[in-house]
Design a protein around this nucleic acid. Sequence first.
DNA 1: AAATTTTATCGTATTTTTACGATAGTAAAT
DNA 2: ATTTACTATCGTAAAAATACGATAAAATTT
Lengths: 111, 111
Amino acid sequence: MATTKTEPFSAKQITLASLAKALGHPARIAILQVLIEEKTCICGDIVDRVPLAQATISQHLKVLKDSGLIHGEIAPNRSCYCINPEGWNQAKTLLGDFLSSFDDTTSQNCC
Amino acid sequence: MATTKTEPFSAKQITLASLAKALGHPARIAILQVLIEEKTCICGDIVDRVPLAQATISQHLKVLKDSGLIHGEIAPNRSCYCINPEGWNQAKTLLGDFLSSFDDTTSQNCC
DNA sequence: AAATTTTATCGTATTTTTACGATAGTAAAT
DNA sequence: ATTTACTATCGTAAAAATACGATAAAATTT
């Protein structure tokens, strides 16, 4: 009785929310920015560039991977992460469409 | 030792993450869609259209209001909520820019 | 072969989130 | 004036999220 209820919502609503949720932490934003800046998919360099404990970074990477926004090749000594174009584009499309569905100029006269 | 650390991150990263976080729940997506569909800012009709308890809806509305995405005129008998154009546009800009900062075609050769 | 480096995972503590019933307080209707 | 309708808030319970130290396991270096 504390889990997010999913039955009442559409698959699209759930996907959209879950992608947004993955973006909903500054550390994960920072990690994604590093992955975008460095064209090649660097690995533990993220730990050097994001000032959180290694275990915490690893945890955030897992969240991002589970969301589909990044792809990770887990190798014991040199793990490799990078943006997953499919997931990223899905986020871009879903969030973009959703945020465009409100039109500033059309709707107003509100509280 | 379980709160999100904010010191290591920029204001922009924090704002972006916090807007995304507000969008990170299907119920809040559904609420926003209702507010967008109904041009006028309906009030407790949200409770009728989103199948969660009234108290839960109220809680989600508070989260959305705190994020700046919606505006709420709280009146004891007929509360009025609507999209807050400023907050919405900020989300659109920040998320749009961020999601556009990765270019599918430019970057590849990854893991 | 031994030492070092890298990194995922475990264990754990704290906080936040999610959800709901119950309640209170105000406005509108009777 | 009393009843009804609406809605924020309180209290609470359970789960998830955040953060980190410690550990293990594999690859690389020495």
